[in-house]
Design a protein around this nucleic acid. Structure first.
Lengths: 342, 342
DNA sequence: GTGAAAGCGCTAACAA
DNA sequence: TTGTTAGCGCTTTCAC
């Protein structure tokens, strides 16, 4: 903390005004004459004064801090979310306090969120228990679940249309005449995985197909690597694999090509989910379903601001669109257009 | 903010003690009898009381908030840093407030850091101006530069031995008998780039070699892609390329293989810097110099805590080791051991 | 060991 | 428009 930080009283003394005048000068929309305002600003500048945000929060009851809870950044989708969300909130005068959770350590996070009197909380991680969300919501802290939702709860959420995404992938694979279609699941407790898988199954069913083999990768690189090995060690190999996110899909592609010497898409087609930047890298060129991060962030900030500033309490479940991005790992050998905005 | 948050007075009333007793109960090391303490804890629990961190900070003069300033998360080195730093600081009872800067927007960041009375600041981005660091340090806020330093300044820093790293790469390439050795620079204003390049040049000089061609990639994927194209469009092509970080190296490898149909390492060897997880992915298998993130984080937290808690003001310049990680993109066709701990 | 009282730096009535 | 005043919820002397 600063040596002996300069306070509004110091500024007031130098500017020959009351301490309240100083406060008003730094409160947008308060009534101060241009003259006083200028004197205060001059004095503040010469002393290097900055209003103490902590003191301000104490009395105003608003900290302008938003808690962002994340479990892991291994999947590059999340760093992007963090970056964009931070920027968006900063633009609205809020600050982001970052919490990395670990399984079983979540009560501590709740406690800290409450201690710092966060104005709002964003839970942006698929592997979180619903505990934090419920607790905060009960106490009255606005909460938005990002890229997940909790069924039958009153907590607002922002997701993309994961069911649609799954269906689009199914349609692509059906159109490509694939027969032995495998699915590598993420975390089976996550809404993202369940929705993607449901949509996928439905889509296949419409074409008279079904998931031929299924493994679980738990949304981790290692998990996906093992899952892919199990899948490929069998005599009969899949001709297409839908992987529940891009991060795992990269692992799967590595196994297919490097460990089994098979070609993508000639021997096996691979489709991922998220459309992280790496999906567009030449080494992978991964067909995937885009999650529109920008729109999702925008919706999140929107809901959060409404709840924080207008005290709106209605829960909102925003579902953004999903879009198939066809690259060479699957499907680009047809002329069909694989996009849909349902 | 919580509905009507319960305060220490509410707890005191219920527990039949003074408000100070409540405060003492939640202050480690304060003198309270076991009896009172228990009564207070019971009351607190039944009311759902949590001490207000803001009020506490106001009087104690310590916010237990550390500002983490980052410019971009595109390079996967930084998400890892964020994750580990957050976890480490959380373990010591501190919280991380995240600031994403943009060029030209840095004064605002300073202002916000000062307003929230951060106990300390970590600047973990190569493209930051030195402005923030100097300003904070002047005002007395402990600052640590992560993965960079400012020459001739009094600001503490933690880096890995980038010169050594550069030399190790030079030695590897010289040992491999490469002749047309190219360097793709990062941001030329960054200490990381300069040190890596200097070490590299020195190392080559020792073997009677020098940088054959040089391009600038600005530490961005696009920049590196363009740089690689310029390099390869010429008639005479390099036989080895040292790229200033892994993130750019992936771009370079993509260009070499996908756009020019050349093989790595048979036609061109590629070496990166950082050893991010993707360097180990089969699609790249990138020879690189490891930056020991864990050790760097540990040093950062150490310096920060010392300065924040013991008011030590001595600047520290911690330089951790660097280590060559040989994979198939360069150098694994010899039996030599390319490791060194100078 | 415990309570009373004095602020930390600020905002927001309330008068003037 | 301005200054005065009363707190926000807490820690920390200071008596007892």
């Amino acid at each position: 903390m600063a040596k002996t930080s300069v306070t509004s009283i110091d500024v007031a003394r130098l500017a020959n005004v009351s301490q309240s005048a100083v406060s008003r000068t730094f409160t947008p929309g308060a009534s101060v004459s241009d003259d006083t305002k200028q004197r205060v600003l001059d004095a503040a500048k010469s002393l290097g004064y900055r209003p103490n945000a902590l003191a301000r929060s104490l009395i105003s009851g608003r900290s302008r801090i938003v808690g962002l809870v994340v479990a892991y950044l291994e999947n590059h989708f999340y760093p992007i979310v963090i970056e964009q969300l931070s920027r968006a909130l900063q633009m609205h005068g809020y600050h982001v306090m970052l919490f990395m959770t670990q399984p079983g350590q979540q009560d501590q996070v709740i406690s800290e969120i409450l201690q710092y009197k966060m104005d709002g909380v964003v839970l942006a991680s698929v592997t979180l228990s619903s505990h934090i969300a419920e607790e905060c919501a009960n106490i009255g802290v606005p909460v938005v679940l990002f890229n997940r939702y909790i069924p039958d709860s009153h907590v607002s959420s922002v997701t993309s249309d994961n069911e649609l995404g799954g269906r689009l992938v199914a349609k692509l694979m059906a159109d490509q005449q694939h027969k032995r279609i495998a699915y590598i699941a993420g975390n089976e407790n996550s809404s993202t995985n369940n929705d993607r898988e449901n949509g996928f199954s439905q889509g296949l069913a419409q074409a008279g197909l079904k998931i031929w083999k299924r493994k679980v990768g738990m949304y981790s690189f290692e998990g996906a690597t093992s899952a892919a090995r199990e899948l490929l060690e069998a005599d009969e190999k899949p001709d297409a694999v839908f992987v529940a996110n891009d991060h795992m899909a990269f692992a799967v592609m590595d196994v297919i090509r490097s460990e089994f010497g098979l070609r993508i898409p000639e021997d096996i087609s691979v489709v991922g989910y998220d459309n992280v930047p790496e999906a567009d890298w030449a080494a992978y060129n991964l067909t995937t379903v885009e999650q529109p991060v920008e729109a999702m962030i925008e919706a999140t900030v929107d809901i959060l601001l409404k709840q924080m500033e207008h005290k709106e309490v209605n829960e909102v479940h925003k579902v953004t669109d999903a879009r198939l991005i066809v690259r060479s790992s699957a499907g680009n050998n047809t002329n069909k257009i694989h996009r849909s905005n349902r």
